[in-house]
Design a protein around this nucleic acid. Sequence first.
DNA 1: ATAGTTAGTTAGCCTAACTAACTATATGTC
DNA 2: GACATATAGTTAGTTAGGCTAACTAACTAT
Lengths: 137, 137
Amino acid sequence: MARASDVADRLHSVAIRVLRHAREADREAGIGPARLSALSVLVYGGPCTISELASAEQVSLPTMTRIVQGLEQFSLARRKASPADARSSIVAPTAKGNALLQRARNARLRRIEALLKSAKTEDVARLGDALAAVFGV
Amino acid sequence: MARASDVADRLHSVAIRVLRHAREADREAGIGPARLSALSVLVYGGPCTISELASAEQVSLPTMTRIVQGLEQFSLARRKASPADARSSIVAPTAKGNALLQRARNARLRRIEALLKSAKTEDVARLGDALAAVFGV
DNA sequence: ATAGTTAGTTAGCCTAACTAACTATATGTC
DNA sequence: GACATATAGTTAGTTAGGCTAACTAACTAT
C-alpha cells in the first residue's frame, strides 16, 4: 500500500509533466499565461471585481490591475462600474474572450488526452475514478 | 467507464490545483521559479550544458544563459569549461544549491501531502497505483 | 582554407510579479 | 456632521523571466 508521501511525490511529478505539456498549446492563444488564467476565472466563475480576481489568482492587487488592463486592451474583457460601490468595478469577459478561452482550453485538453493515449484504457479509467474520489472533480 | 477526455479534464484541474498549492511553498526558497526548476534539473539530472538545460526546461538559449547567471550569482551553481568542447561549459549545482533544492522540494511535497489528508487512505492508494500505471512514475 | 554549423552571449523588448505610495470612496464613532 | 480609519484601485519603480536578432568563438566537413 502506497504511503501518502509516495503518492504526493508521484502527483507532483505528474502534475509538472501534464501542465508543461498542456502549456505548449497556450502559445497559439496569442495571450500570456497570467491573462489566460485570469480570463478563465472570469469565464468559469463569472464577472467579479479586481480584488476578487487577485485573490482567486493569488497575486497582488496592482498585478491584477495590469492583467485586466491587458485583457481590456485586446477586448477580451470589459469593466463596468459597480452599482454597490463606486470604488469598485466589475470585470466581465467579452464574447471574444469567451471564445478565445474555449479554444485555448480545448487545445490544452487535447494535449493532455494525447498523453493518455499510450496507456491502457482501463488504467486511464481507474485514474479518472481515483482523481474523482480524492479531489471530488 | 470514464472517457479519456473526461480524465484529461480532471487531470488538468487537479494538476492546476496541486501545483498552485505546492508553489506557495516556493516563496520561502528565496529564489524564483525558473531558477528553482533549472536547479532541480541540475540536482536530479546531474551536471549539463546550458543547451541541455534550455531544452530540458523548454526555454530559449539566451533565457537559460540568464537563469544560470542568476544561479551563479547566489552560488547555487558553478560552471566549468567542457573538456570536450571549448564553446561549451558544464553547469553543476553547488552544495548550497543542492541543500536549497532539497529543502524546497520537501516543502512542496509536504504541501501536496496535506492536500491528500482529507481523502480516504484507500482512495489515495488507488490514486498512487493509477498514476504509476498510466505515467510510469 | 574556407564555408557552414553549433554554443553561448549581449542587447533590446515584452509580460508579470512585487512593494510603496498615492487617490477616492465607504464606514464607524463621537 | 465631522473626523478617523479602512477598503478598492491605480501609479511608479524594481526585478525575474520570457522572446528574437545579432553577434563571437569554436568546431566540422570539404
